[in-house]
Nucleic acid binder design. Structure first.
Length: 596
RNA sequence: GGUCCUGUAGCUCAACCGGAUAGAGCAACUGCCUUCUAAGCAGUAGGUUUCAGGUUCGAGUCCUGACAGGAUCACCA
């Protein structure tokens, strides 16, 4: 039983003995005492004044005295207005700390024996990744790490959207203008090359529309009748029919794109356990349409189209099969949901997809639940907000996107400039220096995108957004590097900082107590992040921890202390902070350096 | 127009699901490198939490209604 549980239980006992009232410990909780007051945990008295039948001060004093008497860990208490602030003894905190440093990984939970799939990234194969995809990739990867630490067996899945009208557009433009160019001949990454033809398609398409309108056609009609659009649609039909030439072209372009994506994923440090391709899954789900009709979840209209009636779930009707018997997006997603379950027996499934698809997933999940799927209750849409630029929304076709590869390069370059300016690369080999720039640049980028609550839209200003000071990845990385230097020195002078050598230290300072309090909170934060599917919880935590550590670092000396146990304790405390930073940053997908 | 999301310092974000005097970072200003890394630390200044009501011991947080921004409402994906 941890101290919070002991405190709530004892408070409950206090109500029984002092006020003859039964108070369930589960019905109230303690909060951390705000730092401007003295104490560790605070019990809010206001809701209970009717029970105690006395003023807040008197009630608090009685309960406080009771706690102090019953629990040796309670050193003192004070009552300010309606708040009972409880201070725990230094002995308690040192004891907690000593237990903590002997534990293995500070943030891991016992295995639950349950599986969860996290689907993220899921790119279209007609263009390179951009800033929006980065938020998606970092979120998905981090959430997968967090769920794993929380005890789930996690399968990271990438559902690649490799077929459809979008890739046909690139194919048409390539065939007309490509002159057999290849990534090698064009000197472009594969995904960038294919993306180039996607943009070219759109330019030519717009010209064709303009021309048709000038010839007297309505805009609506012109959009359908433009020659290239018709060509793209024909190509899609041919692809579905398995026309060899079309399929070859499709394979060629997609393979180039995959090579490009692989390179980008590698520099992002993102990996997957399972790839799904829409070219394999786009026909799935039709059997579920029949099942739904039988179960009365779907109904057929006169023209033969099939709909889901979701009025019971507060939604309207939704098409699941066209009149001509072809499937829509929803059909395929129903089939894929079943496929995921069939492949992995997952109980929980997280879809990392932008909030523009909120309605789609609400409908999909409702359908799967109405169909009585065993995994229905475990479906979760991690809906994240768009990343805006100062100029507004990003649009691929209008060239207002921030390209992922360019951005990463820029970040690494900035890290290089900044580091060299500070003159901090003494003793680094060329390779080590480059690895450091990579680590810092990516750390800054990942942290920037992860520190914000996922569901909120966020603003990215390429000139200003990425900093290396304050609430940033490099700040936390720097804190780790500082501690690493202390540990190097400790090992150099062969300092023993095992639990045993720290134990005699009793004169705990405020900044030290705050740090221990923080360190013990890490597990809770991992749990919270897992339940909310929010890496931002971890990011915020790490920043606070690093900040508290830097204060400690500035205020208290280590190696100039004369007493061995003080040195040992402070080095051990530093080591534990470093361990926690490393663990937390790993959950975010960020590496930390030994020197910077 | 219907539905959903968001609105907190000049800017970017927090606030442990209703608790104390709403906190950080950036930008501005003032101090601190003869000590374990100054990518740091300490401090000053900056707020009618978009607005108006309501619920209660207590509201940035819950409810209602405005206002502003965004998303979505295809036999598109």
């Amino acid at each position: 039983m941890d101290i919070q549980q002991q405190l709530t239980k004892t408070i409950s006992n206090a109500f029984q003995e002092l006020f003859d009232h039964t108070l369930d410990p589960k019905t109230f909780s303690l909060q951390a005492t705000r730092k401007e007051f003295s104490g560790d945990y605070t019990f809010v008295l206001f809701p209970f004044l009717k029970i105690t039948k006395s003023a807040p001060e008197a009630s608090g004093a009685k309960i406080g005295a009771y706690l102090q008497e019953k629990l040796p860990e309670v050193a003192s208490f004070n009552v300010v207005k309606g708040f009972l602030n409880i201070s725990l003894s230094a002995a308690y905190w040192t004891e907690v700390f000593l237990q903590l440093i002997e534990a293995e990984d500070p943030g891991s939970f016992p295995a639950k024996g349950r599986k969860v799939m996290v689907e993220f990234s899921s790119p279209n194969t007609n263009k390179p990744l951009h800033l929006g995809h980065l938020r998606n990739n970092f979120l998905g990867f981090s959430v997968a790490n967090i769920l794993e630490a929380y005890g789930y067996e996690v399968i990271k899945a990438n559902l690649v959207n490799d077929r459809g009208i979008h890739i046909c557009k690139s194919m048409v433009a390539y065939e007309k203008l490509g002159e057999n160019a290849s990534p090698e001949s064009a000197g472009l990454k594969g995904d960038h090359l294919v993306g180039k033809y996607y943009v070219l398609f759109d330019q030519e398409y717009k010209n064709q529309i303009k021309k048709l309108i000038a010839e007297g056609m309505t805009e609506e009609l012109a959009k359908k009748e433009a020659p290239w659009m018709k060509a793209a649609q024909e190509m899609l039909v041919k692809w579905e029919a398995g026309d060899p030439h079309t399929v070859d072209l499709w394979k060629k372009l997609n393979n180039w794109v995959y090579q490009g994506f692989d390179e980008t994923y590698r520099s992002l440090g993102v990996t997957f356990d399972q790839y799904y391709y829409e070219s394999d899954t786009y026909l799935l789900g039709k059997d579920i349409v029949n099942e739904g009709l039988e179960k009365g979840v779907f109904f057929k209209k006169e023209n033969g189209s099939v709909w889901a009636d979701l009025s019971s779930a507060g939604l309207d009707e939704k098409l699941v099969l066209r009149a001509d018997g072809t499937s829509v997006y929803m059909t395929q997603d129903m089939g894929t949901a079943d496929l995921k379950y069939k492949d992995h027996g997952i109980e929980k499934s997280v879809y990392v997809v932008g909030n523009e698809q909120d309605y789609h997933f609400e409908v999909l999940f409702s359908i799967m639940r109405l169909l009585g799927r065993p995994y229905g209750e475990g479906l979760y849409h991690l809906s994240y907000g768009m990343v805006d630029l100062p100029s507004g929304k990003m649009k691929s076709r209008e060239g207002t996107v921030v390209d992922a590869d360019d951005l990463i390069q820029e970040m690494v370059d900035t890290a290089r400039d900044h580091t060299q300016e500070l003159g901090k690369i003494e003793g680094f080999t060329q390779e080590e220096a480059e690895a450091l720039y990579q680590m810092l640049g990516l750390g800054a980028l990942k942290y920037f995108l992860l520190k914000v609550d996922p569901k909120k839209r966020m603003l990215f200003n390429p000139q200003e957004s990425i900093e290396f000071q304050g609430n940033t990845g490099p700040f936390i990385q720097y804190t780790h590097a500082r501690i690493a230097a202390i540990l190097r020195k400790a090992s150099q002078i062969e300092l023993d900082f095992s639990a045993k050598s720290c134990a005699p230290y009793t004169d705990l300072q405020d900044t030290e107590r705050v740090l221990i309090f923080h360190l013990t909170d890490y597990r809770n934060k991992v749990g919270m992040a897992a339940e909310e599917l929010s890496p931002a919880v971890i990011a915020q935590y790490l920043f606070d921890l690093a900040k508290d550590y830097n204060r400690f670092y500035a205020e208290l000396p280590i190696f100039s202390e004369t007493k061995a146990e003080v040195q040992a304790f402070r080095v051990a405390l530093s080591a534990q902070v470093a361990k926690t930073i490393r663990s937390g940053m790993k959950l975010l997908g960020i590496d930390v350096p030994e020197k910077m």
